[in-house]
Design a protein around this nucleic acid. Structure first.
Lengths: 264, 264
DNA sequence: TAAATAGTGTCTATCAGACAGTATGAA
DNA sequence: TTCATACTGTCTGATAGACACTATTTA
């Protein structure tokens, strides 16, 4: 039973509604902070871990506004898609790949942030693999593509719009998530050694230090937990000596979603 | 040095830019999930804790669309304010109070979510005190105001728009935050007993159970930590027998921001 | 054999978890 | 005195953190 007296009243109100009575936004783009963890083999005598560095992908704007400045890749949302859909489409256009981790970051709506008008931007962050960024085709409103360390992007570049703030926020978010969730798996092969895991964490959260890392993660939490040893069909532990002389046990993430609490 | 050949080129591009080339959104409202923890004294012989219940404030819509249905309070963002500013203004209009915890939740943009057109909604959640909701004045597009338990709101009411999803997401978020951050302080007086804290946590996260709660929180983490005993000017511990026969030690939250990690 | 990384032994202090027992003040 | 709530004692097994030690491979 409707609150309105009758259907007729509803129709009348609907007809009287004027969507253009107030000023409306001039656009709602999705901007994406695309993080990748580069992996560069070291040319040393002995086997060793590759150098991993967290980088962010930027494009140089060709047009007004902020022509010539580095900016986040992004594009306007269409009427028939959700913001997440727009971001997914953008990510696909930039990488040519439909995959990877894509997550909403927040809204950026400070008045005056875009000289084109009232533009409410939606930031996402994506975790992609390095090779995904190589197939990129220069889009219409962009020219060069660059991969920068987060430090470079935040401290050395003169970024377009409020993209400096967005990248800073995204960096903070990814650091939290690296420690509180299992997103490390986005940056690792399916099977990995504990040194690799440790290195991945450190390359995203430089302050992270845990002298007894292996001991700790293999003893308690993880054994009931978030990672597990990889074994072959006979139950024999699998190891790899790709990055070390002595072969190291391989691990994989389980599907367990860790829940943290400050009260337990 | 500019990427453009000269200032003239920039002016030309700017003049040629047509903001109305594409269809633009019809509005960007901020909708607020206002949580409050009601506190009802029990009429018992002996002193006891009040009953606390997590509730959400809804208003009954008077106009099309969804006239007669319960909905989140909210309103459209203006061109000269940020989304957060719009939410803050809404919160002020609804409660008459400029305070409390207000936090961004996310964007809701599924095509067709609003029959008025292309309306991209921004959800916030607020933690307010019960008395703040009493001074509310009926706004133009709303009539009744209601306080519902989250369970009622999610399971029994037929809500407007996609507000069911929004409330569900907000509920999940507040549950995480209750366990991972110190937002419990938003629901407690400045000085509180550990039973009160325990009760607040449980009223937001019903599954939370910790038999040795007092022991745990007073021994380790908290002693270096998130809460501390309240003492008078002579260093004598302060206690309260407001809710119990035997007076209980009072505590307060410190300014420490807890950092959790699955790897330590 | 030396070098490099992986992993274990071992020790101590602390913590978790259980549960019985004591303390305080109101009814 | 009884009752309700607030603690404390005490025990066991697990964990954290440090650091020396052993293991496995390559050069």
């Amino acid at each position: 039973m409707s609150y309105l007296e009758n259907e007729n009243e509803e129709e009348k109100q609907k007809a009287a509604y004027d969507i253009k009575k107030y000023r409306t936004p001039d656009g709602a783009p999705a901007d994406i902070v695309m993080f990748t963890l580069t992996k560069r083999e070291r040319k040393t005598v002995t086997k060793t871990l590759p150098i991993r560095e967290l980088k962010v992908m930027l494009i140089k704007r060709r047009r007004w506004p902020f022509a010539g400045k580095w900016a986040l890749p992004g594009g306007f949302c269409n009427v028939n898609e959700s913001m997440y859909g727009a971001a997914k489409r953008e990510l696909m256009e930039e990488t040519g790949v439909d995959g990877g981790h894509l997550e909403y970051l927040g809204v950026y709506s400070k008045p005056g942030r875009d000289p084109r008008g009232w533009i409410i931007s939606h930031a996402f962050f994506a975790l992609v693999e390095e090779w995904m960024l190589e197939h990129r085709q220069a889009a219409d409103d962009a020219s060069e593509v660059g991969l920068f360390t987060v430090k470079e992007a935040l401290e050395e570049l003169d970024l377009a719009f409020d993209h400096h703030d967005i990248i800073a926020d995204a960096y903070q978010r990814i650091q939290y998530q690296m420690l509180e969730t299992t997103i490390a798996k986005q940056f690792l092969p399916r099977h990995f050694t504990l040194s690799e895991l440790y290195q991945v964490i450190q390359s995203v959260v430089p302050d992270f230090e845990e002298p007894n890392f292996i001991r700790k993660i293999t003893s308690t939490r993880s054994r009931q937990g978030i990672i597990e040893e990889v074994r072959d069909e006979n139950g024999k532990p699998l190891s790899s000596n790709q990055y070390s002389q002595r072969p190291a046990q391989l691990y994989r993430f389980t599907d367990l979603v860790p829940r943290l609490s400050i009260y337990t």
